[in-house]
């Protein structure tokens, strides 16, 4: 990586500010601290495994999505950026700068949890990535799509968190529905899931995520929507 690329990444990090990366890392590190403290204080294995699953499949993806959506509409120099480059590319680069460190730390969390034997029931080696990456991609992509579509990070955060919590509260109703089951975020930590349903779910979540990213990219084809207005 040459010096100009580093300089560009540093510049984009300054534009993003400290809050989004800290928010993303706070969720995944907070979950890790909870699991390690529970393990160290001798909490029951069932509770520790539950906390590990919640940290990987729940907290880390949600925190990353909230953080990623918060960068939309916060660029005071957006008009200048749009005159010199493709805004879509800039915004996706900034999202990557928030998501990538959070994803790496979440992977590290998974390795540590496995080493501590604090591991969601029924997950094999693939769980290092497949427990958290599909829901993270799904939540980040949908949060970005909502934030860009509505020009409101607040709306994106509220809706995504509501959907996330509703999936947990209405777990049985979702699992009883053939279509909704493919979009269940917590299948990676659910008990007694047939292998083929788990596989379909782990493929369907990133697929919807990619569709949402494409839709967000299409909306960013008209970046002038972000100019001259407060959050919707």
């Amino acid at each position: 990586m040459n010096r100009s690329t580093w300089a560009r990444l540093r510049l984009e990090l300054r534009v993003i500010g400290i809050a989004p990366p800290v928010t993303a890392l706070a969720a995944t590190l907070g979950g890790a601290i909870l699991v390690i403290v529970m393990h160290a204080t001798g909490a029951g294995a069932e509770h520790v495994n539950l906390a590990a699953g919640a940290a990987l499949a729940g907290f880390a993806p949600l925190g990353t999505a909230v953080a990623a959506s918060s960068i939309v509409g916060r660029d005071s120099g957006a008009e200048l950026v749009m005159t010199t480059t493709v805004y879509r590319r800039v915004l996706f680069l900034r999202v990557g700068l928030v998501v990538l460190p959070a994803a790496l730390v979440t992977l590290l969390d998974a390795v540590v949890f496995r080493a501590l034997n604090a591991w969601p029931a029924g997950q094999g080696t693939g769980g290092y990535v497949l427990v958290w990456a599909p829901p993270m991609l799904w939540l980040v992509a949908l949060a970005m799509l909502i934030a860009i579509g509505l020009r409101s990070p607040g709306a994106a955060s509220g809706l995504i968190a509501g959907i996330w919590l509703a999936q947990d509260l209405m777990r049985s109703a979702i699992l009883d529905n053939t279509v909704l089951r493919t979009q269940f975020l917590f299948m990676g930590v659910a008990d007694r899931v047939p292998v083929h349903e788990w596989t379909v779910n782990r493929i369907a979540l990133p697929t919807v995520g990619v569709v949402a990213v494409i839709a967000a990219g299409l909306l960013l084809g008209r970046p002038e929507r972000f100019l001259g207005s407060d959050a919707a």
Partner: peptide
């Protein structure tokens, strides 16, 4: 805290 960190804290 700023809005992003607050929102995450509120959800938690």
């Amino acid at each position: 805290t700023g809005p992003a960190l607050y929102r995450l804290g509120l959800f938690g």
